[in-house]
Amino acid sequence: MSTVEARAGAGLAAPAIVYFVLFWALPALAALYLSFTSYDLSGTPQWVGLDNYRQMVTSDEFWSSAWVTLLYTVFAVGPTIVIALVVAVPLAKPGRFRAWLRGLIFIPAVMPLVGATVLWQVIYSTGGLADTIAQAAGVGARPWLTDSDYAIWALLVMVIWKYVGLYVIIFVAGLQALPANVFEAAAIDGARTLRTFFLVTVPLLRRTFTFVIVVAVTGAMQSFVPAYLLTKGGPVNATQVLPLYLYNNAFSYSRFGYASAIAIVLLVVLLIFAFTQFTLVRSDEE
């Protein structure tokens, strides 16, 4: 390597290297360290070994939070992906009208999440849109956000509405990148629409599926804003997802050691998930 090139490269890369060391690499190591300590920001962290992790696995609130996160992830990702794919197939065909519909469906996904969540606060308020629709359907008004039977489903409806358009667009991009001759061949063979969908389209979209599932699952597992704004994790922790549990422990109770342990557990679960998904796809493609 020439010295001029080496110096230029190092110079261009230096700000990024400093940034990633200061704001990612060192903090990650610090988080691991803090997870073995008791620390409330005053004084210095006290080493407690595995106490935080031990406390976590014996805490009912942690397991309830893990369960809520699992429920939230499964019922946010599953319906979103199914709806997005079903909508994307007819929308992927060319045409100005379809392009227009795609743009409209995408609007909620472009809205800032905080603004959207504030809107849904009103939708779920007494006499709001949710009550109005429920009354018209003969179900009657409900305390959507303050009854533990409804709160998590209310959050999920909002989250699905917010993100389904994003996945429609990703599926459309995936569908449009598929070779047209495969579908022509299937049509010549006389394959029916549904058959083509399950036997040709879905397998060909494998790569898109993996991407979508990883993005959706990791996104859902880290979701904080809807639960924080709509329910504050209530009623009685019914919507306290792990990121909110972490936030409460750190910034409401100043338990920075315990909160760091939650963060480490969340990270490990996310990494295992992403790694498994990508390994599956790679072995599948070989």
């Binding site: 990024a16 990633f20 990650a28 880290q222 909160a259 760091s260 963060a263 969340l266 990270l267």
Partner: peptide, 26 residues
């Protein structure tokens, strides 16, 4: 090509795989 290239690449991969929740407290 420059010294520190591999280090930067590793840092980017590390940052991509970390969740903001982990680095937030430190």
């Amino acid at each position: 090509r420059f010294p520190g290239r591999a280090a930067l690449l590793n840092l980017v991969v590390i940052a991509l795989s970390l969740t903001p929740a982990v680095v937030m407290i430190p």
